[in-house]
């Protein structure tokens, strides 16, 4: 097993090199003048266009520019993000906790609801309950997240004024920046509890409700489907029939089958979580939620190459590690699985 893990970890640098070269190459297809647009924002600066291109070496051949970037990364310098108005490493530290918070807050209901509905569906296969739970999950899966987000904002912010966009309100902002406030983790929900700031906790939670609910609704379907089919498979197996024949209560039978149905669910769930961490781009944009996704969306639109590359490094590493974690979990849950 250790060997397997090491082998997979050895793939990480290769994937990262591939990912960054791919992105860098894509940006490189633009003319140097276009790429200089990140630094030339105002007609007053037009006469400096050539100087900016020279300063950033935008006319150099691809390999030279890529290697220059790579050398800087090796020194721990990911460059400066013009969209975040801070160095990329700092921006990741600033935005990633927000995304973690949102992902976790969406992930929990996704898991709970998804597994519950999926089990319900499987147990009552082709009954009304099954049809209903599938319909609910499929509708979520079919909703454009941005339209749903806008409608939720319209109702819960515009009309009811309950759940505002953003991460926290101006008042909370003052609390967070107070000298007495300790930012232990960067996660507002956690930090507010650790500092005993109830109002802040509630405020942050209110801002998280809509984006988390949107994410839950639109991603739940996947988990419902996987749980359902995995449960159906288990329920069809001999041991379930035997157990039933022996007169075991239906609840006990289901509990039993569910334990064995976990494996594909865990795989899907870990991949899903990594996906949430890596790119809840649209949801964050709609709710003006200052996370990684919103930042990278702006960065990509403005050709902020250092930012996009930095985020790509982060998310691709997460992806590889997340898959690895899923495989390991798989083995832990099912000892029969052997690593090739």
């Amino acid at each position: 097993m250790a060997k397997f893990v090491l082998k997979r970890l050895a793939m990480l640098p290769l994937v990262l090199a591939g990912v960054t070269m791919l992105l860098f190459g894509l940006f490189q297809t633009l003319s140097p003048e276009s790429r200089a647009s990140l630094y030339i924002k105002d007609p007053r600066q037009l006469s400096s266009l050539e100087a900016v291109i020279r300063e950033h070496g935008l006319r150099d051949p691809f390999h030279k520019q890529y290697l220059r970037w790579l050398r800087k990364v090796a020194r721990g310098d990911l460059g400066y993000s013009e969209t975040a108005k801070m160095p990329v490493t700092e921006a990741v530290r600033a935005f990633f906790p927000a995304t973690i918070e949102l992902s976790v807050l969406a992930f929990i209901p996704i898991m709970v609801l998804g597994v519950w509905l999926g089990t319900l569906s499987a147990v009552h296969k082709d009954k009304l309950v099954d049809q209903l739970s599938r319909f609910i999950s499929i509708t979520g899966y079919s909703l454009p997240s941005f339209a749903l987000g806008l409608i939720l904002l319209m109702v819960f912010y515009g009309v009811l004024n309950l759940f505002p966009p953003g991460r926290y309100s101006l008042e909370s902002d003052i609390v967070v920046h107070d000298a007495a406030f300790n930012a232990f983790t960067g996660l507002i929900l956690l930090d507010s509890l650790l500092n005993g700031e109830w109002a802040l906790f509630v405020d942050a939670l209110r801002h998280l409700v809509l984006p988390a609910a949107t994410l839950t609704y639109i991603t739940m379907a996947l988990l419902v489907r996987v749980t359902r089919s995995s449960m159906l498979e288990e329920l069809g197996k001999d041991y379930v029939r035997t157990a039933r024949a022996k007169g075991l209560s239906e609840a006990a039978v289901i509990a039993h089958a569910r334990r064995n149905a976990w494996i594909p669910v865990i795989t899907i769930a870990s991949i899903l979580f990594v996906q949430l961490l890596g790119g809840v781009l649209i949801t964050e944009t709609v709710f003006a939620y200052p996370g990684i996704g919103r930042w990278v969306a702006q960065a990509a639109l403005q050709l902020d190459v250092p930012a996009v590359m930095g985020v790509a490094l982060l998310t691709s590493s997460l992806f590889v590690l997340g898959n690895l974690a899923a495989d390991i979990l798989y083995a832990v849950v099912d000892p029969r699985i052997r690593f090739k």
């Binding site: 791919l22 992105l23 996906q275 790119g279 998310t315």
Partner: peptide
């Protein structure tokens, strides 16, 4: 190659492609 493309969140890649 497919690993590389799949390792990138698809929205990010798509956004970059269209922007470029």
């Amino acid at each position: 190659l497919t690993d590389v493309v799949m390792a990138l969140p698809s929205v990010i890649l798509a956004v970059v492609v269209v922007t470029v």
